[in-house]
Write a protein that binds this DNA or RNA. Structure first.
Lengths: 280, 280
DNA sequence: CGCTATGTTCGGTGGTACCGAACCGAGAGG
DNA sequence: CCTCTCGGTTCGGTACCACCGAACATAGCG
C-alpha cells in the first residue's frame, strides 16, 4: 500500500520501520547504511548512492560513512571513494559466531559429518522456529553452495527448519505459519499446513527431516534437531548435496548419520559444558 | 605511555579517540559499545556494565543497547538482560569477508593446501604491512588454533607478516618498524631491525617465510606472499602446525607447496578470474 | 570551455541524544 | 515478613549536535 510513495509524505525523517521508543536515531540510520552496503553489488557504494538509499542529504551520509570508516566498519576503496564493508565487521562477526556457544561444540562434529558423508554440513540455531545458520563446513571437492550465515531462513522449505518445526506441537506449527507464510520456492515446495503437518509426522518418526528440492531445484538436504539441557529444541544440523549425486539408498544412511550428529550435539549441550577442568 | 589512564581527566564526554571532524557521536559510541561486548567474557554484559564501560549514564547505555538489539546487532540473553553480539553481525561479517574479493578466489586453494599438507591454512590481506586474516581452513583432525579473523596481527612474528614485509624495501621495513614496535612474544622472536632484515633476505631467496616459534611456543608457521595485477603485495597465504609434528625435512616441501599456492592466487588476481580451465 | 556530477566543507537551527531522578521488581539479609 | 539494595526501565527537560542546504573543489565529458 505504501509502496510507491515517491516522496515521503507522512515521514520525512527517514525513520521508516518501527520506532518503539528509546531508539537512537543516528545509530539506527547507521545500521540501515550497513544493510545497504551489505546488499549492494560487489564494488561498493558511493556517498551519493548512500544518501539516496537512506533518503537523506549527502552531508549526513558523508558523516555517517566517515564515522563508520574510521572505526573500520566500512572500507573506502579508491576510485571516487566507494564504500565496502570493513574488516572490523569480519572480526565482530567471527566473535559473534564464537559467542554462540553452539559453534565451538559443533565444529568437530560438523567436520566429522562432512567427511563421513562427503557433503556440505551446517548448523543452525532455532530462532523462534526459523533456522539461522551460524557455521558451515564445506565438503572438500564439492561445489560451493551459496549459504550465507546469520540470516533467518524459510522454515518450511529447509531440512533444518522442518527438523526444528517437528519439535513443535501441531498448534504451534499452525501459529507459526500464520505469521510466516509458506511461500513457494519450487514446484515441490510444501505450501499447505496440512501437507506440512503430514511431513512433520514422518519427520518425527524417522528422526530426521528431508528437503527434496523444496527450496532449490536439484538440491537435496537432510537435517536433524538437537536439544538443550531444558529439553527444548536449540537448533538443527543439516547436510546438503546435489540430488543426482545421491543414490536413493544412501538417503537413510545419511539421515541416520545426521541424526547421530545431532544427538552428539544434544549430549554436549546436556552434559559437561566445560571442556576443561571444572570438577564442581 | 598512555596505558594506565584509569580515569579520563581531560575528557569527560566519552569521546576518547580522535574526533577528526565529521564524526557522528552516537554512532561512534555505539561502535565502542560493540567493541566492549566483543571483548567481554562469554556471558555478555548488563546495561550497567555497559554504562560503566562507556562512561555514560544508564539511560543512554540502555537506549543504545535497545537500538542495537532491535537491529540484531546485540542479542539479549535471559537473566537480567545481558547482551551478547547478535546474529546480524554474523551475517555482516560473512558478507564483509565475501566482499573481500580474495576470499572467493582463495577458498579452493586453501582447501587443497590444507589437505595436501594436513595443516591449518589461512589467508591474510596486506593492511599496510600488517597481515589481517580473512579466512581459515582447518585441517581435519588437527587441534584447532585460536585464530581470530579481521584483526591486524603482528607482522614481525608471523609468517604471513614476514612474507608481506619481504616485498618491502629495506627503507620501507625500517619505517614500518618505527611505527610498529617489535614486541617480544617468545625467546625466539626477532626484535631488532638488523635481524629482521637478515631474515627477510633469506625469505626473498627461498620465496617463503618461516615463523619458528616466534609468535607462540611450539607453533610453526610457513607463509608466502601474493600480488595483485599492479604487482604490489596484496596479502599472504600461510600454513600453521605444531612444531614437533613436523620433520625438518618436510619444511621445505611445505614451503614450496605454500609458495605454489600463493602463486596460484597471484595468477588468479592477475589474469583470468574464472578458475575453470587453466591448462598451463 | 562550460556543464554536470561527485566528494568535501561550512554555518545555523530544530530536533534529539543525553542526563538525572524517579519508579519497579527481584533477591539478600535481618 | 519486612527492609534494604542493586539493577532494569521510564520519563521530562535542556544543552548540544546531527542534520540540512548551500557553497566550494575537483574530475570527467561533450
Amino acid at each position: 500500500m505504501a509502496a510507491l510513495a515517491g516522496t515521503p509524505p507522512s515521514n520525512a525523517t527517514g525513520l521508516d520501520s518501527v520506532a518503539p521508543r528509546y531508539t537512537v536515531g543516528s545509530v539506527a540510520k547507521a545500521t540501515r547504511l550497513l544493510d545497504l552496503v551489505s546488499d549492494a553489488p560487489l564494488d561498493g557504494l558511493t556517498v551519493t548512492e548512500l544518501a539516496r538509499g537512506l533518503q537523506t542529504s549527502k552531508s549526513t551520509a558523508f558523516a555517517l560513512a566517515r564515522t563508520l570508516a574510521d572505526r573500520g566498519y566500512l572500507r573506502p576503496v579508491d576510485p571516487g571513494p566507494r564504500y565496502q564493508l570493513g574488516l572490523t565487521l569480519v572480526r565482530l562477526g567471527d566473535v559473534a559466531a564464537n559467542q554462540q556457544p553452539l559453534r565451538q561444540l559443533c565444529q568437530p562434529i560438523l567436520h566429522n559429518l562432512s567427511t563421513s558423508t562427503a557433503l556440505t554440513t551446517r548448523v543452525a540455531i532455532n530462532d523462534g522456529g526459523q533456522p539461522v545458520f551460524i557455521e558451515r563446513v564445506d565438503a572438500p571437492g564439492t561445489i560451493r553452495f551459496h549459504t550465507p550465515l546469520g540470516i533467518p531462513e524459510l522454515a518450511h522449505v529447509s531440512s533444518a527448519g522442518k527438523a526444528i518445526l517437528s519439535t513443535f506441537t501441531d498448534e504451534q506449527v499452525k501459529e507459526f505459519v500464520t505469521v510466516h507464510e509458506m511461500v513457494r520456492r519450487t514446484p515441490k515446495t510444501i505450501v499447505t499446513l496440512e501437507d506440512l503437518l503430514a511431513d512433520l509426522t514422518i519427520t518425527r518418526r524417522r528422526n530426521y527431516a528431508v528437503d527434496d528440492e523444496e527450496d532449490v531445484e536439484g538440491v537435496f538436504c537432510i537435517g536433524a534437531a538437537f536439544f538443550d539441557h531444558t529439553g527444548t529444541c536449540a537448533g538443527a544440523v543439516s547436510a546438503t548435496g546435489i540430488k543426482r549425486d545421491l543414490a536413493p539408498r544412501e538417503v537413510d544412511d545419511i539421515g541416520r548419520a545426521v541424526a547421530a550428529a545431532a544427538g552428539q550435539v544434544t549430549a554436549l549441550l546436556r552434559g559437561t559444558p566445560p571442556p576443561a577442568t571444572d570438577p564442581r
